[in-house]
């Protein structure tokens, strides 16, 4: 009945809660309202990117270019703010999203029309999009002082005690959930990833789906580009470098199967939150931030091992006693 509370998500939620409680016992400041809000704000961009990546992975693809798209869209948006600080914030956000859409559409076209493997295409555009920042901006960076207040203040506005950044993430998550669970196309993504041949028999068109998901992934990455730059107050060629791997890690931890067809909004959000809690807990635990990367690597491995065990397809049940035993276990 309740689709969004399956076992894996529940288990991950419990683990996160236990982790937060343990950290809180050690350092009560961590579970203060302020800090929890900070963790949520900090995790919002990762969560949105992970949702976009999840949709791509559902179709058996991968988008390695998200962080580069984010950086380029952020740069272009920041330049606009630098040159026209008088524009309304929607113009900056809009430009970032449009940039993301164009970049995502390029990925999607190469993948769907030419049939080039997604990993090859996005590996190439990963380098190209990031390099374009230098080509476009001449290697200059846009600093906080040059962006103007409108550009920078919007994500930090507080609504019901939480930042607009967080609320944007909530809207994106709801949108993705609505799309994946309540539209034919969204359900089709699961079908294409789960069984491409059967999906074809059902009249679902893989190239169209691919074009769509890579474009959506670009759009969300573009939006995050604006959010990232305005939040951290600087745009240059190296922002979010390597972040695509953190994004994929969040998906894997959240139970998205790299083989396609399996993944949920709730799981992915929890996967992002898991990483967010770890990153924010390290300083509280007085562990150097240098541990962060090693820990997330270990967590990714642990998550894939656990997922693989959960996914492992059993051998056939032919013997009557084996079928009975399996029936009883159910």
């Amino acid at each position: 009945m309740i689709q969004f509370l399956k076992h894996r998500e529940a288990a991950l939620g419990v683990i996160i809660a236990a982790m937060v409680a343990a950290i809180g016992a050690y350092a009560p400041a961590f579970v203060s309202l302020d800090n929890i809000i900070r963790v949520l704000n900090d995790t919002s961009i990762l969560a949105m990117l992970a949702l976009a990546q999840m949709m791509v992975i559902l179709t058996r693809g991968i988008d390695l270019s998200t962080a580069s798209t984010l950086a380029l869209a952020g740069m272009i948006s920041a330049s606009l703010a630098q040159n026209h600080p008088e524009l309304p914030v929607i113009a900056y956000i809009g430009l970032a999203i449009v940039t993301g859409i164009v970049l995502g559409f390029i990925n999607g076209s190469l993948i769907s029309f030419l049939g080039i493997p997604p990993i090859v295409v996005t590996l190439g555009t990963l380098a190209v999009y990031r390099g374009m920042i230098v080509v476009y901006g001449g290697g200059n960076q846009v600093n906080a002082s040059e962006m103007g207040d409108v550009f920078q203040s919007f994500p930090k506005l507080s609504v019901f005690g939480l930042s607009t950044l967080f609320w944007i993430m909530v809207v994106v998550a709801l949108g993705v959930w609505l799309f994946l669970s309540m539209t034919r196309t969204g359900r089709g993504l699961y079908a294409v990833g789960g069984n491409p041949v059967a999906a074809r028999y059902c009249g679902i068109d893989l190239p169209r789906q691919q074009l769509l998901v890579y474009t959506i992934s670009g759009a969300i990455s573009g939006l995050c580009g604006y959010l990232w730059v305005s939040r951290y107050g600087v745009a240059y060629s190296e922002i979010a470098s390597g972040f695509e791997l953190t994004v994929i890690a969040a998906c894997v931890i959240g139970g998205v199967s790299i083989a396609g067809g399996v993944g949920s909004v709730a799981g992915t959000l929890l996967g992002a939150l898991f990483l967010g809690v770890i990153v924010n807990a390290l300083p509280v635990m007085q562990i150097t931030p240098f541990w962060q990367m090693a820990i997330s690597g270990a967590v990714i491995l642990a998550a894939v091992v656990v997922n693989a065990r959960a996914e492992k397809r059993g051998v056939k049940l032919i013997l009557p006693e084996a079928r009975r035993a399996a029936g009883a276990a159910k």
Binding site: T183, R187, G188, Y190, A191, G194, G261, V262
Partner: peptide, 28 residues
């Protein structure tokens, strides 16, 4: 049987032609 193991029986039956409500959303 060429179908979708991870999806529900109802979705398997209606994949490709799910009933939608007036709003265009899948009418579960």
């Amino acid at each position: 049987t060429v179908m979708f193991d991870e999806l529900s029986v109802a979705e398997n039956i209606f994949m490709g032609h799910m009933p939608v409500s007036a709003s265009g959303l899948v009418d579960w």
